[in-house]
Design a protein around this nucleic acid. Structure first.
Length: 722
DNA sequence: CCGGGTAACATTTTT
DNA sequence: TGTTACCCGG
């Protein structure tokens, strides 16, 4: 039986350079599939090739395959690899995050889903503010009812697919109050025409349940569903996949139970087990050959993770070199530990960008940063605010949101008095009360109360001015292209003058960010837009759904510092796992719960398996924590790694500062003369200007904005005046 | 409305 | 220790 040449050529390309396990995952006949993909086993590759196989060999149309991931990063990577591999345009591809795809569906079916056409998306920050407002309107004491907890409660319930009416009011009084808050919050969202992240999934799920005809459309469209990082799915996501799969479609899930580290935010590792029960005839493939790490590193990691119970079972192996044993270092204190890390980096003589320093919690970066700075080693810390999460950006977007939808109360609250325009608390309280009582938005409440002459002259004047002004800029900017509209709003909102007044140079950075927002709008790819969605609404949605990169990519040749959570999916030739002490890692809040403890162990496993060639694990016998000297025993994880794969290290080079003491930085006399605005230079970061300073003598630190390396806090003695 | 002083607090993070 | 939130006085 001769197969078409096209078929064979393509098949060869698809199967080229795959190992046996990968190959069987890619070429499996149509059925439900569970692909257990160990760390570094070529998971993405298998997904991409499976996709290609389905298209080319199984003749599934492109638009009949749905590929879902958790992060935009993963989605973008898969998309671009598939585009390259198949030479297709992204138009027809259904690849995206759960939230992104749900959003796309809600824009198509907003009416059936009970939403307004221009609905906006609340990010977690907006959501928290919004919940605060709800608390106030319910007269709840912020002491007893922290808004954070309500947010946690509401999101938790939504992730379980539960709405207020599903929740029993028979529970504890506390729960009853929470349910009331949940209910009131939902009503407030409906009035404002906004949805939160969890709503995106929940509302699509409800839509499908309530309107079988719509569900049927998508069940018929998506013959194959691929889910990445399946161990991270939560209840609603699982329900979503199950519903969409129906009786006739095929689901392939890819995941690794040993890398499940997001249980604390609702991920259900059990979904992997449930999958095998709920879906008939699941074919399981294990990808255990690792292409990343040395034999020693894998053996060490395997020995650790084997302590966990209830695993599906998997042992990573490599055909590559054994490599060096894992280096364990016991530091005298946190400074000593940091110095060991930095010393080792210097001795390795490798590009800085090949080093990853991982820790359990962000606060641990500080000491390491300071030592890196002392040795003039460039570094990049992951985490922190993202572009679209910055206050000034959210202010500007607030105006745009009001233009798109005057009823958006979250946006209204944010910008109505930013910058201050004489609309005070009094006025707002009245507006909120009226809005809740009449079940209208704050915008409508403003108009109604102004008509009723409810306010004293001054307040009335300020408010009506704002209302009219919003309508005017909305009208005037409407015909402009997106970026001009953005620019117009920023210029006319008074935000620029507002931030210009901010003391220090912080305001300057904010104004620059506002300018950057105009650029972002200019570059916004309108092809991403969903049919029927205005450019403005598309831009606003994408700003919530893809909040942008974390910080700028000045990481060209710098050491990478991040939490172990953030390191998932990444790899480095050299990895340092720091702070491996009981109470730090595993974290003390996980110590008494066996499940949480196992998750910590998986986190350690994730950290270890990031290393390609060399892995260092360090701990400190004493450490400064919350301002107090503390002592911790070495992490149990160190004991759980088989000793035959480890070796103890000592610091090879004596450090001039003295190993046993905290550093005492000599401060040149002239440092007192450093002033804001002064030009300085630094060995690594180059030339810059002093923005702020704090502390005295050896504690003096200064904030410098460098011409090319961004803004940094430094110990004052490390710069020289120019 | 701001800013200073202070008290409380302190995982992990994506959408 | 470092941050953040809140309260009160000018």
């Amino acid at each position: 039986m001769g197969k078409p040449i096209q078929y064979r050529a393509m098949t060869n390309m698809i199967l080229d350079s795959l190992n046996d396990a990968q190959c069987s995952a890619v070429t499996a006949p149509l059925s439900h599939q569970l692909i257990l993909a160990g760390a570094g086993s070529g998971k993405t590759r298998v997904l991409v090739h499976r996709f290609a196989w389905l298209v080319d060999v199984e003749a599934i149309p492109l638009q009949s395959i749905l590929a879902v991931t958790f992060t935009n990063k993963a989605a973008n990577e898969m998309r671009s690899r598939i585009e390259h591999f198949l030479h297709v345009s992204s138009r027809a591809l259904w690849i995206g995050t759960f939230h992104g795809i749900a959003h796309r569906l809600l824009r198509l079916h907003w009416r059936e889903a009970g939403l307004v056409e221009g609905f906006q998306i609340l990010d977690s920050d907006d959501q928290l503010r919004f919940i605060r407002r709800v608390h106030v309107s319910l007269n709840l004491d912020e002491e007893r009812w922290p808004a954070k907890q309500s947010q946690w409660f509401i999101n938790g319930k939504k992730d379980e697919g539960l709405e207020p009416q599903h929740l029993s009011a028979y529970g504890k009084k506390e729960d009853q109050v929470r349910i009331t808050i949940y209910q009131a919050y939902q009503e407030a969202c409906a009035r404002a025409g906004v949805v939160d992240f969890a709503d995106l999934l929940l509302k699509v799920h409800q839509l499908w349940l309530k309107q079988p005809d719509i569900l049927a459309i998508y069940q018929q469209q998506f013959r194959c569903i691929l889910v990445d990082e399946f161990q991270d799915t939560n209840t609603i996501q699982y329900a979503w996949v199950r519903l969409l799969a129906g009786q006739h479609n095929f689901v392939s899930v890819v995941g690794d139970d040993d890398q499940s580290i997001y249980g604390w935010r609702g991920a259900k590792i059990e979904n992997i087990h449930r999958f095998c029960q709920d879906f008939p005839a699941v074919e399981t493939v294990r990808l255990e050959q690792n292409y990343r790490s040395t034999g020693m590193i894998l053996a060490a990691a395997n020995s650790l993770i084997s302590q966990n119970t209830g695993r599906l079972g998997k042992n990573l192996w490599t055909s590559g070199a054994q490599g060096d044993p894992v280096t364990i270092y016991a530091g005298f204190n946190d400074w000593d530990e940091a110095r060991f890390v930095v010393n080792s980096i210097r001795e390795l003589q490798i590009p800085f960008s090949e080093v990853g320093i991982l820790y359990r919690s962000n606060a641990q970066s500080r000491v390491i940063e300071e030592v890196l700075m002392q040795f003039n080693i460039p570094y990049h810390v992951y985490g922190g605010l993202r572009f679209f999460e910055r206050a000034e950006i959210k202010d500007a977007l607030g105006y745009l949101r009001l233009i798109a939808n005057r009823d958006d109360d979250a946006a209204f609250e944010r910008v109505v008095n930013t910058p201050t325009r004489g609309i005070g608390d009094r006025t707002l309280v009245a507006l909120r009360e009226y809005a809740v009582a009449q079940s209208v938005s704050l915008w409508r409440a403003s108009i109604a109360l102004l008509e009723q002459n409810h306010f004293p002259a001054r307040a009335a004047h300020a408010l009506s001015h704002f209302i009219n002004w919003m309508d005017t800029i909305a009208r005037d900017s409407e015909p402009l292209p997106l970026y001009e509209q953005t620019e117009y709003v920023i210029q006319n909102s008074g935000l620029v003058e507002h931030y210009r007044k901010e003391k220090g140079e912080k305001g300057l950075a904010r104004i620059e960010n506002l300018e950057e927002l105009v650029n972002a709008a200019r570059q916004f790819d309108l092809s991403e837009a969903i049919e029927g969605l205005s450019p403005l609404n598309a831009f606003l949605a994408s700003s919530a759904l893809e909040a942008g990169d974390r910080q700028t990519a000045d990481s060209a040749n710098s050491v990478q510092l991040m939490t172990m959570h953030a390191a998932k999916g990444l790899e480095f030739p050299v990895v340092f796992l720091c702070g491996c002490e009981e109470g730090i890692f595993p974290h003390y809040r996980s110590q008494d719960n066996p499940n949480q403890l196992e998750e910590e162990r998986r986190l350690c496993y994730v950290g270890m398996t990031r290393a390609m060639k060399k892995l260092y694990i360090t701990y400190a016998e004493s450490r400064r924590l919350h301002g107090k000297e503390t002592h911790h025993r070495p992490s149990r994880f160190l004991r759980e790694i088989s000793p035959e794969f480890c070796k103890e290290a000592r610091m090879k080079t004596t450090v001039s500062l003295g190993v046993m003491n905290r550093p005492i930085n000599k401060m040149p006399e002239d440092i007192k003369g450093i002033q804001i605005g002064q030009h300085v230079s630094h060995h690594v970061f180059g030339k810059g200007i002093v923005l702020q300073h704090e502390g005295h003598n050896e504690h003096a630190r200064i904030q410098v904005r460098f011409e090319t390396s961004g803004t940094k806090w430094l110990i004052a003695s490390f710069v020289t005046a120019v």
